[in-house]
Design a protein around this nucleic acid. Structure first.
Lengths: 330, 330
DNA sequence: CGCCGTTTCTACTACGTATTACTAAGACGT
DNA sequence: ACGTCTTAGTAATACGTAGTAGAAACGGCG
């Protein structure tokens, strides 16, 4: 039960020889349809997957490719760099698997990856539905950024959105009282954490909140939200959940005649390559994505080995003050 | 000679048993220093690397991890998505390997990857020095974007920078005569291709070129170049090698009082997420990075199988007209 | 000189698969 | 009925490693 089934097990179950099973799986001719289906049914029943290591030993082919990425990656997010480096140091190799966008297919694919016997651990950097009870037998460690995120939030280390609080307090120090939040989609824990931090800070400091708008990562949509605001609103401080939303908001504000930052201050998140050159340059939060990736991988490896969780990283995020923030026009 | 050496070969060469070789490589105690060094010397002489498939078959551990990426990637560049999907369809698995930035270490690491016997093919999306004569014995296929790039250029399909010509001709049609090119680093074939296309077009259409400046991918540097231009230059059309350079240029132009696009038209390349929201929004070239990644992978797989090169992709790039381009102020 | 303990090495086996060589069973023409 | 050809399946083997059990060499001690 606890062991991974082999082609011998399938053969025994189906009442044929191991060779026959192998022929079925390699698609060789000379197998009757009846036998083939019998074998496939047995394989299904036992949850059999060919062992790729054994196969590649026999065929003398690895079936593996590498994509090498030089360190200053193609805006891969240094996330992968950090993760891959850490995995390598721990003696692991990292494979890339991509998934479809459709929710149902995605769940199925994740399940396939987890039950493929090919991986000792699986890491996801984006919110993914927790896989259905991975068939108890030796399931690989699974770590999704969503849990990760929430846990970090709980421990106050990462997506706890503390920089957002820091930015709001600074804006209040400059004289701002009226705020607007442009939020990201609610299935992104980071987006939720930022929204919650915004609401909590409004509450704690007794500020005026014009509302929470947005709900996706579209800069166009963010711009539309700004266009719908009443004319007499400024001075206003807009806290956007990332730089794309901030950029869309700035553009819409300028287009309706509000000057940034004199009438409207705006903050973003992510420090995209163009944020520095924007007009005005965007105040944002830069994340040390490489260290974040490394940390996520350390956690996964610890989970595999049954070690306790490693020390959480701190100072992974930093506010970068730029031109899009100023005291409100008096 | 043509075969990959095994621990048996090393044992024979060193005059010990295979077990001893295995013990040396797994670091087990109970091996005298003399024997250990003898084994290591033999292994070095034969270029031996443990066969990971055999090892993982024996140990029942794969040593492999996966990073799953959902389709609308984290601005991974859809490049990887396309490549991974294509590889999977061809029956391959894709591993991520990262390299250091230092040129010498990098060359050594690439060499290690190529001679590790672990990969049937290796793909690089960035310019990487062609590896030293990969020890003739069954070297894996290697495809670097640099060659790729240059070849595509030769066949007129990809980095042939044709969109750049299209943009310049359009600008001429609007009435522009005076041009400036902000180039990328000369070790990026794409950057070179764009510069060459610029120069050729200036020549062909008898335009006035203020010069070719730049030389790296820094937006700040691009801005400095624009700041050094003479005051009475506009009207001017700036052709930047990518959007970051374009953004830096726009920012510097606006800061010195030139309005964009009335005084200065600017074009970029890449269609970054913020380019659409920029003030003014940046005319750029969008690349179908997913198809590009898929094509690169098809080529790699074809090289492995000894097939001829697949049909080159066309229409991978498209000019996106935006606000940063207009007729020159009269 | 024989006994024991330690160190150092070797012979052998199992891991799970693909594939070659072979056998059994029909199908068919004469 | 007999030999031949085709089809469907099986037995046996090799791939390269790690590790178990055991052998050989060696030194110390009585």
């Amino acid at each position: 039960m606890g062991k991974r089934p082999t082609s011998h097990d399938v053969a025994r179950h189906a009442g044929v020889s191991q060779s026959t099973v192998s022929f079925v799986f390699t698609g060789r001719a000379g197998i009757s349809t009846a036998t083939r289906e019998k074998v496939l049914r047995s394989a299904e029943a036992l949850n059999y997957r060919p062992n790729l290591a054994a196969r590649s030993m026999r065929t003398q082919r690895t079936g593996r490719l590498a994509i090498v990425i030089p360190f200053p990656g193609l805006s891969l997010g240094s996330l992968l760099e950090g993760a891959v480096t850490t995995a390598r140091e721990a003696g692991y190799t990292v494979e890339l698997v991509n998934l479809s966008q459709d929710a149902e297919a995605l769940a199925q694919e994740v399940d396939a990856v987890l039950s493929s016997f090919e991986y000792e651990g699986v890491l996801s950097f984006s919110p993914i539905p927790t896989p259905r009870s991975s068939s108890a037998a030796s399931a690989p460690a699974f770590l999704a950024l969503s849990e990760f995120d929430e846990e970090m939030h709980a421990t106050g280390a990462f997506s706890d959105a503390h920089p957002l609080v820091e930015m709001m307090e600074h804006l209040v120090g400059l004289g701002h009282r009226r705020f607007l939040h442009i939020a990201g989609p609610s299935d992104y824990p980071a987006a939720v954490a930022r929204r919650d931090a915004y609401l909590a800070t409004v509450d704690r400091l007794g500020l005026e909140s014009v509302g929470v708008v947005g709900g996706n990562w579209s800069g166009i949509h963010a711009g539309n939200c700004v266009r719908e605001l009443p004319d007499d609103l400024p001075p206003l401080a807009i806290i956007a959940a990332n730089d794309v939303l901030a950029a869309g908001a700035i553009r819409a504000a300028v287009q309706r005649g509000w000057s940034v930052p004199e009438d409207v201050s705006v903050t973003g998140w992510d420090d995209l390559p163009l944020s520095l050159h924007f007009l005005p340059s965007i105040t944002t939060v830069s994340q040390d994505r490489q260290r974040l990736g490394a940390y996520a991988m350390r956690r996964l490896v610890a989970a595999i080995r049954g070690d306790g969780a490693p020390e959480p990283e701190t100072h992974l995020q930093q506010v970068i003050w730029r031109e899009s923030v100023a005291p409100p026009r008096t």
